[in-house]
Design a protein around this nucleic acid. Structure first.
Length: 481
DNA sequence: ATGTTC
């Protein structure tokens, strides 16, 4: 395992393992962390994994880890790797098994103090409207032809079928649809698992949360996002469910058996990949795009169910519920970035990392062009969450990326041993936080003590200059799998 | 993350 002495301190918030550290490194490995944050990251294998990532064919500039980094499959969670297009590789392990896991924020017109008394009813109604937990099916159940159409069209499919309005699409990364999604390169098994899963939350760290805006750091940005203090907002964290998981499983297995054929030799099987200019590489990208589209559709269907639940409990009091934005933190995107003074096309793998484009980027909605891309950073269950925006500096240093959450610092097994879920639920209720969960052991696994301090993670990315705080939110109702 | 070990 790598030790602190082997890292060069570049700034108070950035550390580097030079390319000379190991012969097979193609670029340096960099980690954003405070001194204290680094100690936590060094406790698991995430930086050794980051060094392995730096050996990927075609990797550009650096393998990058965020302050919420922890050990994952092959690649660390909280990592960014950009590979040169088209001769570099694409790797399912650099994207994650939950393809296009991401976070969507909705803004209601309600004031927290006015609807506080309805929060428990709202939690129950949301829980009843949005199936939570592993293996649950949702309101959408499609035949194969319609499901293929959903995979091609993403969030658009949901809107066309009565889940939300077309104005929602403008406020989703990539407008909720990646081109080139191809159902023909997705296994039958993946389609079977996914065809009744749109509109479901899933388990693990996924959640549906009602929050109040508790503190504003940047008034101008908050205003552009349509957010103000004490406003009730809704936070949705989920991904592509069993569908994306099966796509990832299929291609990891396929690539692992063909690494010799591609002539690629890597230090960890979890890095299995294919050159983007091969049939296999293209097929995975097109399958991943289908997974991404499924996840956007999922969050769009859930949005529509949330609107229904609010109407059922509050009538017109909730007002119009708008999509603020929808970000992806497990995805690879073909983007143009400046590398050594040249504009280069790269496949930016973000695994547990959020795209954070700076002000002026053409892909941002008009209303957000001047403030930069909104970024949503959830804390652990029952703690606060943050809205940030991307920066110009981040475009240079991290391919326009930042962190994605608090990041675990304890295993699920260890958390289960230490936490009594009923006690935790009671304690949170005393703080006016209402939990509705499908699984009590899931609640224990997600206890705040199993996570790093989100405030520390957010402070690190802000001080490092790769994202800027806009506001803080505080939970009032939490739906968990 | 995941029909939580095809």
């Amino acid at each position: 395992m790598i030790r602190k002495e082997q890292l060069n301190k570049m700034t108070n918030f950035l550390w580097e393992i030079p390319q000379s550290y190991r012969e097979d490194m193609r670029v340096p490995a960099r980690v954003y962390a405070t001194e204290e944050g680094l100690e936590a990251i060094l406790k698991d294998d995430s930086l050794d994994q980051l060094i392995n990532v730096s050996t990927l064919p075609g990797i550009q500039k650096a393998a990058i880890a965020m302050p919420d980094a922890h050990q994952g499959y092959g690649f660390p969670i909280g990592g960014v790797a950009a590979t040169k297009y088209p001769e570099g590789v694409i790797s399912p392990g650099g994207i994650g098994y939950d393809i296009n896991c991401g976070v969507r924020l909705l803004a209601t017109d309600a004031d927290y103090n006015e609807i506080k008394g309805e929060m428990e009813n709202l939690a129950t109604e949301l829980y009843n409207n949005v199936p939570a937990g592993a293996g649950k099916s949702g309101p959408v159940n499609l035949n194969r032809q319609d499901f293929d159409r959903l995979l091609r069209r993403g969030a658009e499919w949901a809107v066309e079928n009565g889940y939300g309005g077309s104005e929602d699409l403008e406020y989703i990364e990539a407008n909720g649809r990646l081109d080139h999604a191809d159902p023909n390169v997705v296994s039958e098994r993946a389609k079977q698992r996914g065809q009744d899963q749109a509109g479901t939350l899933g388990g693990g760290n996924h959640f549906l949360e009602v929050d109040r805006v508790s503190k504003i750091f940047n008034q101008k940005a908050a205003q552009a996002l349509g957010l103000h203090e004490n406003q009730v907002v809704v936070f949705i964290h989920t991904g592509s469910r069993g569908f994306g998981h099966q796509v990832a499983t299929d291609y990891v297995k396929k690539f692992q058996s063909k690494m010799n054929e591609y002539g690629i030799n890597l230090p960890d099987r979890g890095l299995a990949c294919a050159p983007m200019d091969t049939r296999d590489g293209k097929d995975y990208y097109h399958a991943m795009a289908a997974g991404a589209n499924f996840a956007w559709c999922n969050r769009q269907v859930i949005t529509s169910e949330v609107r229904k639940a609010f109407r059922n409990v509050l009538g017109t009091q909730a007002g119009k519920i708008d999509v603020v934005y929808d970000i992806s933190h497990n995805i690879a995107k073909l983007e143009v970035h400046e590398i050594n003074g040249n504009s280069e096309k790269v496949m930016v793998h973000r695994k547990g990392a959020t795209r954070a484009f700076g002000p002026g980027h053409p892909e941002l909605p008009d209303a957000y062009r001047d403030i930069g891309q909104p970024v949503f950073i959830p804390g652990s269950m029952g703690t606060s969450s943050y809205v940030l925006t991307g920066t110009t500096e981040g475009m240079q240093s991290t391919f326009g990326s930042t962190c994605h959450g608090a990041g675990r610092n304890m295993s699920r097994t260890a958390a289960k041993k230490q936490v009594d879920p009923n006690k935790l639920i009671r304690r949170l209720k005393e703080q006016d936080i209402h939990i509705q969960a499908a699984s009590h052991s899931g609640v224990a696994e997600e206890a705040p003590l199993a996570y790093k301090e989100v405030d520390m993670v957010v402070e690190t990315v802000e001080k490092a200059g790769i994202a800027k705080r806009v506001l803080q939110m505080h939970p009032a109702a939490v739906i968990k799998g």
